[in-house]
């Protein structure tokens, strides 16, 4: 696996600089000597689904709680849903946002509807019955409205928590590990709900460990390990971090691979990864593939496959986090 040098932390290229749903500027949070996160800056545009990735203890939940006015930052500034972050602005900010914590935090002795009615009151919503019915429909729980929450499965409780987070029609919705501990079916249900919200243009700030989840749901992602390591679109991060490559497999090892690959216009380098398997670093896979195929055929090789190597977001994540751990050890 060949990688380019990690690009410096930068503002997202897609998010508009003005009128952003979230603007975080050199934000730092410490608990005594312990640094939760430091010098973090990014913007999230309205209607964007922004993934916040990082290992345990990276500061993801603390960031959510800070932006949700539950914790005061140690330094730096932020604007949340158009309001500057401060203790005084806490109630106004909290009226415009919603946070779905990792644990659903439902009142288990109350029914689903009673839980939602309580929170509708806390947001001072009118037409409580209508609003509760609407969010229950949004999460497909209308038929469970009168069930006690303690009788619900973990997946259903997570859906109730999501319904609760939708009650006030938030400008920014923070989802903190929404699929943590869920089985694949419940995870898929939550993903479908998030996709539906994304399609409706809801701004979502999603913290997750699940990289396939971030890749599937998020317009952009940020990778945090106390400080921000990288930010951008998943495909952009892959390009920024890894050279593009084409993988070739032949029935038998090439007699002289150097003669085959060197001199090709679009091949910048190559390496043999296994017997009969070659990794070619290319500038443009679409242009390189036919050129490589012709060269292999001309060399009399039996080509089994010729495919572009695709690095997943997981590769990007592991590369960055592993490197960060190494740097901290030094």
């Amino acid at each position: 696996m060949t990688r380019r040098g990690a690009a410096p932390v930068s503002w997202g290229t897609d998010a508009p600089r003005s009128g952003s749903a979230l603007v975080v500027d050199h934000l730092t949070k410490r608990f005594g000597e312990r640094v939760a996160y430091q010098d973090v800056s990014f913007e999230v545009g309205y209607g964007e689904v922004f993934g916040f990735l990082g290992p345990n203890g990276a500061g993801k939940t603390t960031m959510v709680r800070t932006l949700g006015t539950l914790l005061a930052p140690t330094s730096g500034s932020a604007t949340v849903a158009g309001i500057a972050l401060s203790a005084e602005a806490g109630p106004q900010i909290r009226a415009r946002i919603s946070i779905m914590p990792e644990s659903p935090g439902l009142y288990l002795r109350l029914t689903v509807a009673e839980n939602l009615e309580c929170f509708a009151g806390l947001y001072e919503l009118g037409d409580v019955g209508e609003r509760v019915a609407a969010v229950l429909e949004a999460v497909n729980l209308t038929d469970r409205a009168n069930d006690l929450c303690r009788t619900l499965s973990k997946g259903l409780r997570q859906r109730v928590a999501l319904a609760r987070a939708l009650l006030n029609d938030p400008t920014v919705l923070f989802l903190d590990e929404p699929t943590s501990g869920l089985d694949p079916v419940a995870t898929r249900d939550v993903h479908d709900l998030i996709t539906a919200l994304r399609d409706r243009g809801v701004t979502i700030f999603l913290t997750t460990h699940r990289l396939e989840e971030a890749e599937r749901l998020c317009h952009r992602v940020a990778i945090l390990n106390t400080s921000l390591l990288l930010i951008g679109r998943p495909d952009e991060l892959r390009e920024r971090l890894f050279t593009r490559a084409v993988q070739v497999r032949t029935r038998a090892p090439l007699a002289d691979p150097r003669a085959v690959f060197e001199g090709l216009d679009h091949v910048e380098g190559w390496e043999q990864s296994a017997s009969g398997t070659y990794e070619l670093h290319v500038s443009d896979p679409d242009a390189a593939a036919p050129e490589v195929a012709r060269a292999l055929v001309a060399a009399g090789a039996d080509v089994l496959s010729l495919v572009e190597s695709r690095h997943s977001l997981e590769d990007v994540y592991l590369e960055l986090v592993d490197e960060d751990v190494e740097v901290r050890r030094r």
């Binding site: 539950l70 109630p91 946070i99 659903p104 935090g105 929170f119 609760r164």
Partner: peptide
């Protein structure tokens, strides 16, 4: 302990 405090404190309640 039940995890119900945080969702309440996230709302505009003073």
């Amino acid at each position: 302990e039940q995890g119900t405090l945080e969702p309440v404190l996230i709302t505009p309640i003073s």
